[in-house]
Computed example of a mutant assay.
Amino acid sequence: MFTGIIETLGEVTNLKKEQENLHLTIRSSFTEELKIDQSVAHNGVCLTVVAKEKDTYTVTAIKETLQKTAIGSLQVGEQVNLERGMQLGARLDGHIVQGHVDKTGVCTAIEDAQGSTIFTFTYAFDRDTVTIEKGSITVNGVSLTVVNSKDNAFSVAIIPYTLAHTTFKNFAVGTQVNLEFDVIGKYVARLHGLPQ
Rank of each mutant, 00 (worst) to 15 (best):
R91V: 06
D102C: 09
N21E: 12
T131M: 05
S29E: 12
Y187P: 07
T129V: 07
G89T: 13
G174L: 12
K103D: 08
T58S: 12
A164W: 07
C46Y: 12
I96W: 06
E11H: 06
V80Q: 02
N21Q: 06
K103P: 02
H192C: 05
T56C: 13
Q196D: 11
H42F: 15
G135D: 03
Q75K: 13
T31Y: 10
I118Y: 11
V139T: 09
I118S: 06
K17V: 14
N140V: 13
V146H: 01
I110H: 11
K35P: 01
D128C: 07
E180T: 12
G94Q: 04
L66A: 02
C46L: 08
E20P: 08
L191C: 04
T145Y: 07
T122C: 05
S29F: 07
E20D: 14
T60A: 14
E133N: 11
E33Q: 13
K150W: 04
V40I: 15
V183T: 11
K68H: 07
L144S: 04
Q196I: 10
G4R: 01
T60L: 11
H23G: 02
T122I: 08
I62C: 09
V12N: 04
V49M: 09
P195I: 02
L179R: 04
T129H: 13
Y187T: 10
A124K: 13
N178L: 14
V146G: 04
R84H: 05
V177C: 00
I110S: 07
K35W: 01
T60M: 15
I110P: 08
D126R: 11
